[in-house]
Design a protein around this nucleic acid. Structure first.
Lengths: 352, 352
DNA sequence: ACGGTTGATGTAATCGTTTACAAGTACCAT
DNA sequence: ATGGTACTTGTAAACGATTACATCAACCGT
């Protein structure tokens, strides 16, 4: 008894033409005569016809969707990137499938299945900690959907990517602290093995070394980008004898967790210690104190990654190996707000 | 020259059976003999076969995907809800399409097309401000994909929904302030016309009236759930003569924006004014001061909405009109942290 | 020995499009 | 009249699965 949705055949009958003509009216109107076109359009609105995307995609051997793999949907950092991706992708007629790669259960190995070659036309990977095999063993090269990295990446996998210069960014953050007069500068790191952790730590080191300042292991606090790990780092900072007067956190969330915990322990920012974050989340401007941080052009990162993927999807699979692998490095800038200030006077006296 | 991905036919040939048998081995293994099953499994791994979802869905007249419509991906409030939805939905074999309903450009009317009946098997709507017509004119009832509301909803549209008791929640928040001794209590509202705005404002009013306290229009500040609007409200609060000693904000983001701006103006929370938020975002526990707020079970809201939708999708379209429309109201609780305290002494003296 | 039941498999239609190819028409130059 | 273009349109074969129905073998009780 369930009536079916009208199909292209119903339109064809209503218009008195063949299904081929209807199809052509829709996908390449310029080849059908004006008169027929009108008739078909009328028939379409009469019947209330809507294209069945599944059928089209089956025939065209496409899926009409791309997938985005990200480590943590809960992190507001990704929201704007997703907007950028969605903006470009839906303009190009693609759906965007978002997949949080943190397994909900320990035995959650469904997602290699998920993004096997015939589920999506392309992949944007925002997670550099994914299993390499998983990413590579997605069917034979001929049928594998193209992939681009954004923000994070995996060194061993040569793929198009759009990133920022993390090393230079952290260098800039630390230089800022040094310019303010800080001589003892610490760093709260991201999760171990993460590329961002490595490059940002390196930038921090290089800035310190370039200024001839100490680069002490006990001033590099472990973390994992989360609020909680920032708070934990604050606890360890408090216990550090001879502790740094300024800290550069590898993410805004850690910076906020750090400052939050310090506040609970009656340590003031920036009076007692300066903090520079990384990312420039919306909330940081409203935080107490407003956070000095590295601004990332997140929407633009998303847009660029999407455009790059679109580009790659256009290249036939067998040619994709050839030619240079596109790279894009977007500029970042330091946003000075109120979480940084010259070091406290007593600390300045202590310094060499 | 591009080699094709192996199809069910290749497997059938390799196993020396018909495609029907292969299909059955995959979708209802119990009906094929053990011997054949083995052979087919072997053939599958030999050929590296992967099911083509598009083909299956076309044949089954499903899309294998559901869509989530939300007002703002950037709002961290939605992230956990999405996790909950994704958890249940992908366990059930569905993809989750996330759509931010804020138009990227003024003429962005692409999405009525987007969620027309044949694009998704179901809809979860987290945005109560959507155009009613848009939501209802999605093809004939027989082919329309089922829809459930979560968090927000539209009163005129009778659909399954999972919510919290917003009225009671705000009542609880305000009672807490009254118990602390506050006599002048304000409210920062959400966007006009939003159901959450209305119900939370109502809860606030009722708590005040029940306690015999004044309910003054100039203590109800306009807002739109955003950080910025919270900051704006703070500005107006400062200008209010005879202002409230406590404020209940209809969202955590507004509460944080409110407090941030107050801090900039040297007004202390909770010493000078108490603030209660709504939502219990992760960050609020790390905010300065940690925020007293209403906790929403966000993951569970997502899960429940997903389960409810799955349920509805099982019912044949023509029967969906019949029977009661399921409703689920999840419990919330007040989380007391440090942004609330008894009113300042001078204010207490002023009070009746 | 025979009809009936059960279980396993194959045959072929179907889902709703797209598109290579064929075919038809109109027009023009020869 | 003939053949050649240039346009339009139609015919029918894909795309890769699922599934109703038919078939067939094996087994059982009488």
């Amino acid at each position: 008894m369930t009536k079916r949705a009208p199909s292209i055949r119903d339109v064809a009958i209503a218009a008195g033409v063949s299904t081929a003509t209807v199809s052509r009216t829709l996908s390449s109107p310029e080849v059908v005569s004006e008169k027929t076109r009108e008739t078909v359009y009328r028939a379409i609105s009469e019947t209330g016809y809507r294209l069945n995307v599944m059928a089209r995609n089956l025939r065209r051997r496409e899926t009409g969707a791309i997938a985005v793999l990200l480590p943590n949907l809960g992190n507001p950092f990704f929201a704007k990137i997703l907007s950028g991706i969605a903006e470009v992708m839906s303009a190009a007629g693609y759906n965007v499938l978002i997949t949080d790669t943190t397994p909900t259960s320990p035995d959650d190995h469904r997602f290699p299945e998920y993004f096997s070659h015939n589920q999506t036309d392309g992949l944007i990977v925002l997670d550099g900690m994914l299993n390499r095999e998983l990413l590579l063993n997605r069917g034979t090269p001929e049928v594998r959907a193209p992939m681009v990295f954004a923000c994070e990446w995996i060194d061993e996998i040569e793929r198009p990517k759009v990133t920022i210069d993390n090393r230079a960014a952290s260098e800039r953050a630390v230089s800022h602290l040094i310019e303010l007069g800080h001589r003892r500068v610490g760093h709260v790191c991201g999760p171990p093995d993460n590329v961002l952790t490595v490059t940002r730590r390196q930038g921090t080191r290089e800035a310190l070394q370039a200024a001839g300042l100490p680069c002490r292991d006990d001033w590099f606090y472990a973390g994992d980008f989360s609020l909680q790990s920032g708070a934990d780092a604050a606890r360890r900072w408090c216990e550090t004898p001879d502790r740094p007067t300024a800290v550069h956190c590898a993410s805004d969330e850690m910076a906020m967790g750090f400052i939050g915990e310090l506040h609970r322990r009656r340590v003031r920012v920036p009076e007692d210690v300066s903090v520079v974050g990384f990312d420039d989340l919306e909330i940081t401007a409203h935080f107490i104190p407003p956070l000095t941080t590295i601004h990332q052009p997140r929407v633009e990162i998303g847009r660029a990654a999407a455009r790059m993927l679109l580009e790659r999807m256009r290249i036939p699979p067998q040619d994709r190996q050839r030619g240079p692998v596109p790279r894009l490095v977007l500029p970042v800038e330091l946003v000075e707000r109120l979480s940084t200030a010259p070091p406290p006077v007593d600390a300045r006296q202590n310094a060499g």
